[in-house]
Design a protein around this nucleic acid. Structure first.
Length: 292
DNA sequence: CGCGTTTGACCCGCGC
DNA sequence: GCGCGGGTCAAACGCG
């Protein structure tokens, strides 16, 4: 059908040891490279906007445990915010970093008790399929401005489906963690409003550690971890994206969190009270990784 | 040969 | 009850 944002065929996996990017278009660099600061491919990842689930309480609180985020700078729908599953096609504001608690490796302190997420994917799927509603797993969504559809996050994913999204020229890709014991799933789609925005939705919680810890995926990984963490511990907290970016030298990312149009985050990512290099980052990112 | 992607069909939930 | 749309399955295919 459409091969719009389809990863290059035979890419041999979207997350191999080398963390190659699906970008077949020449010039696409891996985040690793970008972060490395050696080269610059602004076109690839110039901005990152993350947010944290606002209200909706702890993940899984909402009807579907869904949380959405907004992306500042997004030309059009930048206000995209909490977009409950119901808000389908309209504003697919979602992306949810699964609670990669493992990825963060024992950032335990706030790590919520292993919820019923740990059930085998199979079981989960099956049960959901026959049992009650589908997807009971907490979900996290975050928007990223990138030309890359499938951002690296430290885990290996296998694509198991792709569907055309209603009201959107871009298809939605479905990924599943390659770890057989991992229930995490991920959906990736581009915003119909702004094709430069990639909406990633994580569902579930990794029951294992990252396959590797490529520098390039640091931010992505952190994004998930970060969101996860905040989501579980302080739903009302906003992610200091800027800081994050600074720490990671990712670039000019900007966070925009627009709660249900009400409590505007008074705490701008930039003035986030979080300690700089330490804080969450220090908690999530192994010292060795914080080389940038 | 193994792993991952592609792709059409099927299943299920939900709204009308 | 019906139809629509999202999500998942699984066989086929391709690449390293």
């Amino acid at each position: 059908m459409e091969d719009k944002n389809r990863a290059p065929r035979g890419s041999g996996g979207s997350g191999g040891p080398g963390w190659p990017f699906p970008g077949d278009g020449g010039g696409i660099l891996s985040l690793d490279e970008i972060c490395g600061g050696e080269r610059e491919e602004a076109s690839i990842l110039s901005e990152f906007g993350w947010s944290i689930p606002l209200d909706s309480g702890p993940i899984g609180e909402d009807d579907d445990g869904f949380s959405g985020f907004g992306l500042e700078g997004a030309p059009g729908p930048s206000e995209t915010v909490v977009a409950p599953p119901e808000a389908k096609s309209d504003q697919p504001a979602a992306a949810l970093p699964a609670r990669s608690s493992d990825a963060v490796s024992s950032s335990s302190s706030e790590e919520p008790p292993p919820e019923p997420d740990e059930k085998p994917a199979e079981t989960a799927n099956k049960s959901t399929k026959k049992g009650q509603k589908r997807s009971r797993e907490p979900r996290f969504a975050f928007m990223t401005r990138s030309e890359i559809d499938h951002l690296e996050d430290g885990y290996r994913w296998r694509k198991y489906g792709q569907k055309a999204v209603k009201n959107s020229p871009f298809p939605r890709s479905y990924y599943r963690c390659t770890n057989s014991k991992c229930t995490v799933k991920k959906r990736v789609e581009r915003s119909s409003e702004d094709s430069t925005i990639v909406i990633t939705t994580y569902e579930g919680q990794h029951s294992h550690h990252t396959v590797s810890f490529p520098r390039g995926s640091v931010h992505a990984q952190n994004a998930a971890a970060f969101a996860e963490r905040l989501a579980v511990s302080t739903p009302q907290l906003y992610l200091p994206a800027m800081q994050f970016h600074q720490n990671l030298a990712v670039g000019a990312g900007q966070l925009l969190q627009t709660p249900h149009g009400e409590h505007q985050p008074s705490l701008p990512a930039r003035t986030s009270p979080l300690p700089t290099d330490e804080g969450l980052l220090g908690d999530m990112v192994p010292p060795g990784m914080r080389n940038r």
